[in-house]
């Protein structure tokens, strides 16, 4: 199908270049400067910036507005959208609105359960799941129809992303789910952060066998560890994160003040390994509340300069 490029990210990935994306968490306040500042530190280092949508169910500035702030300073945002907080009416309207503001990438997620966030007493929505959200965006884009079948005047031409977690159980199902997301209309995948390289490699192998890497661009997620504490915390408390004992041990073995460096080192090693895996089209660096280090990582990983 001949199609104009929807976004820069799409353009880079479709050219087969190794893409780099990162993440930017909007503030728990109404100050646009925070976003702009974070964006500035990323300028030139990444191809697109994911803007989280009330991540871990903590109330933050909306993803759409934070994306808009990044757009305004010339960065390409990937708008994350979770189905936890909005029913299908709100989701669709927000997609239309986001597109009208110039947002061109969307990452469709179910979202963390509110029980972990700042509002455990909230009523969750989960009207539709992420799979259906992908399909919805795809239908809006390709058929120009909303969920009710109504013809949209100006369909939102969004580049559709989805998340994949190779480390969740049951392992055998993970590839099936990936395939299903691709079927639903995913263009690119950003994975959960990779620490267990063995498992990731196996997952990629299965994905390749299924021919999925032909159909979709996979950006492997990485997160630099700050400390052995963080490693332990993430391993135990954060759903879907798999940190092998060896890595925790490695973080623990270095002195405390060296831990940061060791974390970044592990991260860079990971990126290097990922680049060798067939079918990995890029990395997604999730430096949680640590955006300033992204540039350093990208640079050290030899991923500069970023294409235009």
């Amino acid at each position: 199908m001949k199609m104009e490029h929807m976004s820069k990210l799409e353009q880079i990935l479709s050219r087969g270049e190794f893409a780099v994306t990162t993440e930017c968490g909007p503030p728990r306040g109404a100050d646009s400067e925070v976003v702009i500042k974070k964006g500035e530190t990323l300028r030139g280092y990444v191809d697109a910036v994911n803007v989280t949508d009330n991540q871990t169910a903590i109330v933050r500035m909306s993803s759409i507005s934070a994306c808009t702030h990044l757009l305004n300073i010339g960065l390409e945002p990937v708008m994350q959208m979770v189905t936890r907080d909005r029913n299908r009416i709100a989701l669709q309207s927000d997609i239309l609105g986001a597109y009208s503001l110039g947002i061109r990438n969307i990452l469709c997620l179910s979202g963390d359960h509110q029980i972990f966030g700042s509002q455990p007493d909230a009523l969750n929505v989960f009207d539709i799941d992420s799979m259906n959200l992908i399909r919805t965006v795809k239908t809006m884009r390709d058929e120009g129809k909303d969920m009710s079948g109504f013809d949209l005047k100006e369909p939102p031409k969004m580049y559709i992303g989805a998340a994949a977690n190779p480390f969740a159980d049951p392992f055998e199902y993970r590839v099936i789910r990936l395939a299903k997301k691709i079927d639903a209309g995913t263009d690119f995948i950003q994975t959960q952060c990779v620490y267990n390289m063995e498992r990731f490699t196996e997952w990629m192998r299965l994905a390749r066998e299924e021919g999925l890497t032909e159909k979709v661009q996979i950006l492997a997620g990485v997160t630099p560890l700050k400390s052995v504490g963080m490693a332990r915390y993430m391993s135990k408390k954060v759903a879907g994160i798999d940190i092998p004992e060896a890595i925790t041990k490695r973080m623990g073995e270095v002195p405390k003040e060296k831990a940061i460096d060791e974390g970044i080192k592990i991260c860079l090693e990971t990126i290097a390994q990922l680049r060798d895996i067939k079918g990995v089209s890029g990395v997604h660096i999730m430096a949680i509340e640590w955006e300033e280090k992204v540039g350093e990582i990208v640079e050290s990983a030899g991923l500069l300069p970023r294409p235009l």
């Binding site: 029980i115 455990p120 007493d121 909230a122 009523l123 969750n124």
Partner: peptide
């Protein structure tokens, strides 16, 4: 005040 839904099905 708003209903605390954590005791309902919204809490899993």
């Amino acid at each position: 005040s708003p209903k605390d839904w954590s005791s309902s099905n919204s809490g899993g």
